[in-house]
Simulated assay, not measured.
Amino acid sequence: MRDRGLRPPLPIVSDGAKGLIGAVEYVFSHALRQRCTIHKMCNVPAKVSKDDQETVRAEFWRIFDIADPDIRPGQELVGTVQRRIDSFVATWEAKYPAAMKAMATDRASRTTHLRFPVEHHKRIRHSNFIERTFGETRRRAKVIGRFPSEKTCTSLVRAVLDRASRGWRGFTMTPAGLRCLHDLRRALLEPPTMIRENTNEIAETLTNAA
């Protein structure tokens, strides 16, 4: 995809597949990786007794729900939510160590979406868009049963993806949000070039010039 011209995206949302994560970090090393919140929400309560699952699930979502509509995205908001994660882990760790170990693993990647415009948070914190597309592709393929060639199969998949992608574009864009995205892209993908790497080089240059 990169060789065919895909520019490095700002966020990349994935589940916990190590091969996929490794490939993303190798090919798009400057992109921000977001761990799917819904996948994690399913993993954590699965390690909790049925009596506490509903409570744990409700507390899990309260960690990521931002009530203040005027909150500013950025590192301060990331820090606030990560402290909520720490408090959640501390509350349940003694009773459910395995569940809280899963909650603490890869913690930083679960708050990446908080650096983006607030109106995008609930849409980029999970990978449900692509998961639904996988389900739709399987449903269409089962109807056909057997494809006459590989080309017909890939053509069907492309048609499903093309149709589904129309719903992926439903992001609200505001002037403040566009500025936020522009600043993120410039900071991550177009960082300023350092003239000198250290002060010794600068001092040596000035001495030679004198």
Rank of each mutant, 00 (worst) to 15 (best):
T112R: 05
R7W: 08
T55H: 13
I21N: 13
R158V: 01
V143Y: 10
S155Q: 14
P148K: 05
R115E: 12
P73I: 05
Y96L: 04
R139L: 02
P175M: 05
R72Q: 14
P45Q: 02
T154Y: 11
V48S: 05
A209H: 13
I66M: 01
T205R: 15
P148T: 10
M103T: 12
C42H: 00
D70Y: 11
Y26N: 12
Y96K: 04
L156E: 05
K95H: 04
F60I: 01
T111K: 05
R107A: 04
N198L: 11
R179Q: 14
D183V: 04
A67Y: 11
W168V: 00
G145L: 04
A98F: 03
R84D: 00
T91D: 01
R7M: 09
R139H: 01
L77C: 10
G167E: 01
L20Q: 06
R62N: 09
V78Y: 03
E204C: 01
L20I: 13
K50C: 08
G167L: 00
T55Y: 10
V27H: 14
R186W: 07
I85V: 15
Q34T: 07
V78E: 12
D15G: 03
V13F: 07
D106L: 06
V81N: 04
R35T: 08
S29W: 09
R186V: 12
L77Q: 09
R132K: 06
S29E: 12
E59D: 08
V89A: 09
A17L: 11
R2S: 13
S127E: 00
G22E: 15
W92D: 07
I21V: 11
A90Q: 12
H39P: 04
H126G: 11
D70K: 14
R179M: 10
K151C: 00
P192D: 11
I38A: 08
F129A: 15
G135M: 11
D86P: 01
L188W: 07
E59L: 10
N198H: 14
E25M: 15
D183A: 09
M173P: 02
L184H: 06
W92N: 05
M100Y: 15
E204D: 00
A159Q: 15
F147H: 12
A94C: 02
D51R: 13
R166Q: 01
A210C: 09
P69I: 06
P97K: 05
S14N: 06
D162W: 06
R179L: 12
H30I: 03
G19M: 02
E136C: 12
R196N: 13
T193V: 13
G170N: 15
A98V: 03
R132W: 00
M194Q: 00
W92L: 06
Y26F: 10
P73S: 11
R140A: 07
A159L: 14
A67V: 12
Q34K: 09
C36A: 05
G19F: 02
N208P: 09
R132H: 08
H126R: 12
N43G: 07
V27M: 11
A209G: 06
F134S: 07
S109R: 10
E25H: 14
P69E: 12
W92V: 04
A187K: 14
R107G: 02
C180T: 15
R35N: 10
N43I: 10
S165R: 00
N198E: 10
R72F: 08
Y26I: 09
M1E: 01
G167P: 01
I195C: 14
W168M: 06
F134A: 06
G145D: 06
M173S: 07
V48D: 05
R138E: 15
A187C: 08
D3G: 13
R107S: 03
F88G: 02
K122M: 08
